[in-house]
């Protein structure tokens, strides 16, 4: 009679201890939750062929740690997780296995929008690009970060160029060309588009590249005329139509995307189409941007 009672008592005691233990473990500081970051060289030397599994485990523990914040606060984080520790663990994970795409993807998701650490994420992505030579997503992420967060269009264009070369996706080509234009490197954009057009297998894709190239050529021509105008009159024209009245152009080149070129306030040549194909309705609307 006593034995089952003692057994049940022990079970109940264990239940209580487990509950208390779980509460305490959840309150542990990050250094204990994620653990200190061990020296990558030492880990590499001692874990042999288990590096990929260990790298996977490191990323998963960071993801779980980060996810626990959302769970607690129903999709709204009150306490900020320790991003530096998370970043160091992700860096450690890619030092163990530089091919681990989860680490790059998670860094892109967690450190750019939330913290604006695009520069650090791009350095991590740069590391991954050296190994994942087939992967177009890493240069795409880095290109997006450079353009959207860092406003560094020249770097963004280079990343998008790499993404385009790896994927053969016209979208990346368009983005690269646009960023080349934004950074004032239209000539480089033209050379890039020319290469992509020649290498395209499908007629449709070739046509897309051609259209983008035509747009950039037009921009290039207008920019040259603007330079000429500035040399002659020591100032920029008020609108592009002044280039025609002063005899630098017979007419302003047309935008193959259906828009109309204009001189923006920052002195750059832009188009009302933003180099995106216009619908018929839009084409009919008068453009009053000059």
């Amino acid at each position: 009679m006593m034995r089952p009672l003692v057994f049940l008592l022990l079970l109940a005691l264990l239940g209580g201890i487990v509950q208390e233990q779980s509460n305490r473990l959840q309150q542990r500081p990050t250094i204990l939750k994620l653990g200190p970051v061990p020296h990558a060289g030492l880990v590499r030397a001692t874990t042999g062929e288990h590096l990929t599994a260990l790298s996977f485990r490191t990323v998963i523990s960071v993801m779980f740690y980060f996810g626990s914040f959302f769970e607690k606060h129903t999709n709204r984080m009150q306490d900020a997780p320790e991003y530096l520790s998370m970043y160091n663990h992700l860096k450690h994970a890619v030092q163990l296995d530089p091919y681990n795409v989860d680490a790059y993807y998670f860094a892109e998701a967690a450190f750019t929008w939330e913290l604006g650490r695009a520069k650090e994420v791009n350095s991590l992505l740069d590391y991954g690009m050296k190994y994942r030579t087939w992967d177009y997503q890493l240069p795409f992420f880095a290109g997006f970060n450079a353009a959207y967060f860092l406003k560094d269009y020249a770097t963004a264009a280079r990343y998008m160029q790499l993404a385009a070369e790896r994927s053969n996706n016209p979208l990346f080509t368009k983005l690269a060309a646009r960023y080349f234009h934004e950074s004032g490197q239209s000539a480089m954009g033209l050379a890039f588009l020319d290469t992509m057009e020649k290498g395209a297998k499908s007629d449709r894709v070739r046509q897309i590249y051609h259209q983008r190239k035509e747009a950039l050529l037009a921009v290039n021509a207008i920019e040259s005329a603007l330079e000429e105008f500035q040399m002659r009159y020591q100032q920029l024209p008020e609108s592009l139509s002044e280039l025609v009245t002063k005899g630098l152009f017979d007419e302003i080149p047309s935008d193959p995307y259906g828009g109309k070129f204009y001189l923006a306030a920052d002195g750059k040549v832009r188009s009302s189409s933003k180099f995106v194909m216009q619908s018929l309705e839009n084409e009919k609307k008068p453009v009053d941007t000059e």
Binding site: T52, M63, N100, D102, F106
Partner: peptide, 21 residues
């Protein structure tokens, strides 16, 4: 299945590690 973008790669890595162990 906990992996975000490389379930296949993770499964191969874990299977090889388990077998090796």
């Amino acid at each position: 299945s906990f992996s975000m973008r490389q379930v296949q790669e993770s499964s191969i890595g874990l299977a090889l590690s388990a077998s090796s162990l």
